[in-house]
Design a protein around this nucleic acid. Structure first.
Lengths: 347, 347
DNA sequence: TTGTACGCGTTATCAG
DNA sequence: CTGATAACGCGTACAA
């Protein structure tokens, strides 16, 4: 019986052979419900993603590759990964609650964290093993991993500044997804360090989708004093932005510098002129998630406690033609602004 | 106890109230493993998708919207939808087997069917309730749904033929995904009906990705007698094709007609010149899947048998600028070919 | 080394 | 209408 199948030591080779043979002949496979009930664990890790919250291009290569990484780790330990897809009409908190309370999984990854994310508060209260993919203002100490928005902003702003840009637009999300705020703050800080102030009129909040990018394009073109560069938190926006610019005869890398974000959706790699963006290994990120999840589950099983991990995942700049241009740096383009204070502050 | 919570009739209002109150106070929620063990059903439907098999842009809006539709139906009946993501290194058959044999789900949707799909053979053998999303040569009678490739081919070829095109390239998948074959056959039939023969040199097999589309572009440009039009089975290919054509000064809709497929990835809606493609309601398709799955599960529960459904899902032509051109129709471009036989056949 | 009985949490059933 | 009990399939603990 189970001793033979599960490879316990206290069973003779002969018996094990007989049992295995019989199991194969009868096509026996253990019922997971029975197993879970007995052991108190499901052997399953859930990964919750939310419909069209945040990036439009959810799922595409982005999460898929992450799943691959997570699974490669979990599979080695006999754990399954299942994706819970929280539809557009469903409440994310209720959805997560349901998964936890029915004990459908042993651990959870919750993606697309919002600034105030009640799922996180709930999971902490519940002392349920989980990792947040994305930071949040919610909750206290808990494990999370997030992309290095600060590093991206620093590299993007650094590059543009060096090329003389001072009037740089920042395109971010119009919704409550946390990284929209993180990114703007990071850009503001990177500009501050260089004595440039990020004013409100240079922050463009739009849907993170191609349509949002198209609207961004319209707004940029309508500016009295058009920014000489734009950085954005999501690449679908670039895909919608490019055609708008082209229609107006404004060429990325010649008439305006454009910096995208990560390399998803993959279509963004085929923009012309090629888009300056950032590279990261989503598979390795998934690997990290899986590995840390194992640690959380081990800790819970053995009653130990494990320190919450906080991981910032690096991205590497991949320069493209969209930032090929330089502009004459004039710090006093707009005489109504006094940069002195900032220059002083940065020294 | 359970009678009160599950709303059975044989319990007084007062008791029910007390039980509900206590349950709320203690934060009680039924354990799904216990429930499944007792009832023999998990209350869960699985949807298996495969990593980068077939279309590169898997997941993106395409499957996500389908999930939404499925879930909207299942949720009404207290069923959960979970996504099983079969990673690139895993064997799809073994993966499906595992899900079935451990009794993780009550029913299964298997997407991205291949021409010979051992999952289907297995599921039929096992008499497990499932729906294939995509046709296959495998298996006998079973439920499936698939896109109307024949209708798409007929509309695409019909449009191009009317505009004078006779030398039409067909771009399809290089891998074993079933619809790649279906589409080519459908195009061949549509051309046959018009007395045009689809020769082997006009069939281009490439990866269904932007990179595949780029290679397609190179091959088209290298043709001695370049096709005047190209139809393709997947839109990522168009996204890779466009830049290649542009580099060579070949403009879609002026120098070559281009017809895409469905409207995913969404980026394809932002191509310039706009791409002629096809529209379909993925949400409704998911709704159909959910509804039919319910029928399958009901039938199994009541021991009845339900006739396998075979559904062809319609797509509607959305003309774009990429097919704005007409060409002089000359049926004898290539004197080595004799169209008479086909003209005769079509009369 | 092997056989057996128990209990995980649930719900259906049967007796009260 | 309500309370008690058995059984779903598994793994473990304990007895043989």
């Amino acid at each position: 019986m189970s001793r033979a199948l599960n490879g316990r030591a206290d069973v003779s080779e002969e018996t094990r052979g007989r049992v295995l043979a019989a199991a194969k002949r009868l096509g026996y496979s253990p019922n997971q419900s029975g197993r879970s009930l007995r052991s108190g664990a499901t052997g399953t890790v859930g990964f919750i993603i939310i419909a069209n919250r945040g990036r439009a291009s959810i799922g595409e290569t982005f999460f898929m590759t992450v799943f691959d990484g997570v699974q490669s780790v979990l599979a080695k330990h006999g754990l399954d990964l299942v994706i819970y897809y929280c539809g557009a009409e469903q409440d994310p908190e209720a959805y997560a609650k349901r998964v936890v309370e029915r004990r459908l999984v042993d651990g959870l990854v919750v993606a697309q964290t919002t600034r105030i994310d009640r799922r996180i508060d709930y999971l902490i209260r519940r002392k349920f093993p989980f990792i947040a993919f994305g930071r949040s203002q919610s909750g206290g100490a808990h494990s999370w991993i997030d992309l290095d928005f600060e590093g991206v902003a620093e590299q993007a702003i650094g590059l543009l500044y060096k090329q003389g840009h001072r009037r740089i637009a920042v395109a971010t999300s119009e919704d409550e997804v946390n990284f929209g705020y993180v990114y703007v703050d990071a850009c503001r800080a990177a500009l501050d360090r260089r004595g440039v102030r990020l004013t409100e009129d240079l922050i463009f909040r739009e849907a993170m989708s191609e349509a949002g990018g198209a609207r961004l394009g319209e707004r940029l073109l309508a500016c009295e004093a058009r920014p000489t560069a734009v950085v954005m938190v999501e690449n679908s926006m670039a895909i919608g932005l490019y055609p708008k610019l082209r229609e107006a005869g404004v060429k990325p890398g010649r008439d305006i510098a454009v910096v995208g974000f990560d390399q998803s959706p993959t279509s963004s790699l085929f923009l012309q002129p090629s888009l300056t963006q950032f590279r990261l290994s989503l598979f390795d990120l998934g690997d990290w998630l899986g590995t840390h999840m194992l640690a959380l589950l081990d800790a819970r099983r053995s009653g130990r406690t494990v320190a919450p991990a906080r991981k910032i995942w690096p991205l590497e700049l991949v320069p493209g033609e969209s930032t090929a241009m330089t502009v004459a740096a004039s710090d006093d383009q707009d005489p109504s602004r006094s940069p002195d204070r900032f220059i002083a502050a940065s020294s």
